[in-house]
Simulated scan of single mutants.
Amino acid sequence: MKKELIGSIDRITEQTACIILNDDEHQLQIPLELLPDGADEGMAFTITIERNEEEEKRLAEEIATLKESLSQ
């Protein structure tokens, strides 16, 4: 299942953009390198949040390996 958020860039600093979501209650700090080229204040974006089960599995395996190495 995925969710979509819509927001616009309120301001840009040297390394991040502050995106105000359309609910006017929440904001996200996004590294500029993750935004499309030419992104600027006032532009609106759709942000998709989707579960990544493959990454969850990879992380669980990584943690299990680390725990095993620490217990030896």
Rank of each mutant, 00 (worst) to 15 (best):
K2F: 15
K2I: 12
K2M: 14
K2G: 11
E4S: 14
E4R: 12
L5Q: 12
L5T: 13
L5K: 11
L5S: 09
I6F: 04
I6W: 01
G7C: 01
S8C: 05
I9C: 09
I9Y: 05
I9V: 11
D10A: 10
T13Y: 08
E14S: 13
E14V: 02
E14C: 14
Q15V: 12
Q15T: 15
T16P: 06
T16W: 08
A17Q: 05
A17D: 06
I19L: 03
I19S: 02
I19Y: 04
I20H: 00
L21A: 03
L21W: 04
N22D: 15
N22A: 13
N22E: 15
N22Q: 10
D24L: 07
E25R: 15
E25Y: 10
E25M: 13
E25S: 15
H26N: 14
H26F: 01
Q27S: 12
Q27E: 10
Q27P: 05
L28Y: 03
L28T: 02
L28K: 04
L28M: 12
Q29L: 12
Q29H: 08
I30Q: 08
P31G: 07
P31S: 03
P31W: 09
L32I: 13
L32T: 07
L32F: 09
L32M: 08
E33N: 14
E33Q: 14
E33P: 02
E33V: 15
L34N: 09
L34Q: 09
L35R: 07
L35A: 00
P36Q: 03
D37S: 06
G38M: 01
G38E: 03
A39C: 07
A39V: 03
E41A: 12
G42S: 01
G42E: 05
M43D: 14
M43A: 09
M43C: 02
A44K: 07
F45W: 02
T46H: 00
T46Y: 08
I47C: 01
T48L: 11
T48K: 14
I49V: 15
I49P: 03
I49A: 10
I49G: 08
E50M: 06
E50Q: 11
R51G: 08
R51W: 04
R51I: 10
E53D: 13
E53Y: 12
E53N: 06
E54D: 13
E55C: 08
E56M: 08
K57G: 04
K57L: 04
R58F: 08
R58D: 05
R58V: 15
L59Y: 07
A60I: 12
A60Q: 07
E62S: 13
E62N: 02
I63K: 07
I63V: 09
I63N: 02
I63C: 12
A64L: 15
A64V: 04
A64F: 15
A64T: 13
T65K: 06
T65A: 15
L66N: 08
K67Q: 14
K67A: 11
S69Y: 04
S69P: 03
S69D: 06
S69V: 15
L70I: 07
L70P: 01
Q72F: 14
